[in-house]
C-alpha cells in the first residue's frame, strides 16, 4: 500500500468516526439509549468508592507514564474522563482522591480533573508526580503506607513495575483495578490485580461508570468499530483458509462463519 492510499484510508477512517459520533449522539438525544456493555470490575469501583466515603480513606488513581503532549495524549484524556466519573462518585468523602503520574505534563490534567469535582482543597498536593518506572512504583508503595488509600485504580501506561504496586496493595488489603496500554503491564495486571480491564476497555470504562451521554457515545462508537474490525479479521481469515484449502466450498465457509458469528455474539452478550 503506497503512502497516498494509506492517507486516503486514514482520512476516511477519521471521517467515518466523526459521522458515527454525531449519529450516535443524534439517536441518544432522541431518547434511544442502548444498554451499555458491562465491564468486569465496574461493580467493585462502587464498593471501593463507598469504602472511601465511609472510612475517610482516599482513592488512588494512577496515570503511570501516560503523558499529555506525547503520542499517548488520547489515552491520558480517556483516563482523565474515567477518573472524573470515579471522583464524582466519591465526592461525598472528606478526603480527596490522589492522582499520581510520572509525566510532568500530565500533572495539570490531573489537577484539572480533581478541581472539576472538588472545589476546595489542596489540589496541588493531591496530584502527585514521581519519577518514572520503578522509582514511580517505589514511591507509590510508600504512599500506600502513608495515605492508606481504600483502593487503587491503576489505569495508564505501566510496565512490569505494576507488580510491585499491586503486590503492596494486596498486602495492605487495598483493592486494585489495573489496565495498561503496554503489553508487559497488561499481563501483570491480568495476573495480579483484583479487577482488570483489557486493551480498549480503558476507553469504554468512562461510559460504563457514569450516566454521562458523551462518554456513553464514545463507548458505543468504540463498540461499532470493534465489531467491524472483528468481522473484517474474521472474513480475512476465512478467505485465507479457503485459499489454502481448495476443497472448501462456500456452503462450508458460510456455515462456519455463521457458527463463529453466533459464538461471537454469545461472548459479546455475556460480557
Amino acid at each position: 500500500m503506497d503512502q497516498t492510499t494509506l492517507q486516503v484510508y486514514t482520512v476516511l477512517f477519521v471521517f467515518a468516526t466523526v459521522v458515527l459520533v454525531y449519529t450516535a449522539r443524534y439517536f441518544q438525544r432522541r431518547g434511544k439509549r442502548r444498554p451499555q456493555r458491562r465491564l468486569a470490575g465496574m461493580g467493585r469501583i462502587a464498593e471501593w468508592t463507598s469504602r472511601s466515603i465511609e472510612a475517610n480513606r482516599p482513592l488512588h488513581l494512577a496515570l503511570g507514564r501516560t503523558a499529555v503532549g506525547e503520542d499517548k495524549t488520547a489515552i491520558a484524556l480517556a483516563e482523565a474522563e474515567f477518573f472524573h466519573h470515579i471522583i464524582e462518585g466519591a465526592q461525598a468523602s472528606d478526603v480527596a482522591p490522589i492522582i499520581s503520574a510520572s509525566a510532568g505534563s500530565s500533572l495539570p490534567l490531573a489537577q484539572d480533573t480533581l478541581r472539576r469535582v472538588w472545589s476546595s482543597g489542596d489540589h496541588l498536593s493531591r496530584a502527585q508526580w514521581y519519577p518514572p518506572d520503578l522509582a514511580y512504583a517505589a514511591a507509590v508503595t510508600a504512599m500506600m503506607k502513608e495515605d492508606d488509600p481504600a483502593a487503587h485504580i491503576l489505569a495508564g501506561s505501566f510496565g512490569a513495575e505494576l507488580a510491585l504496586m499491586i503486590d503492596s496493595a494486596d498486602r495492605r488489603g487495598q483493592g486494585s483495578l489495573a489496565v495498561s496500554d503496554r503489553l508487559d503491564g497488561q499481563a501483570v495486571a491480568y495476573a495480579m490485580a483484583d479487577e482488570v480491564l483489557i486493551g480498549e476497555e480503558l476507553f469504554a470504562a468512562a461510559g460504563c461508570v457514569s450516566e454521562d451521554g458523551r462518554a456513553q457515545v464514545d463507548a458505543l462508537v468504540l463498540d461499532v468499530w470493534r465489531a467491524l474490525v472483528i468481522m473484517g479479521v474474521g472474513i480475512a481469515l476465512l478467505l485465507e483458509v479457503a485459499k489454502r484449502m481448495p476443497w472448501l466450498n462456500w456452503a462450508l465457509v458460510a456455515s462456519v462463519s455463521a457458527i463463529l458469528l453466533v459464538f461471537a455474539l454469545l461472548i459479546y452478550r455475556r460480557h
Partner: peptide, 11 residues
C-alpha cells in the same frame, strides 16, 4: 484496540 480507542478519543 488501543489504537481504535485513541482515534475515538482523538476525534
Amino acid at each position: 484496540g488501543i489504537a481504535l480507542g485513541t482515534v475515538v478519543t482523538g476525534v
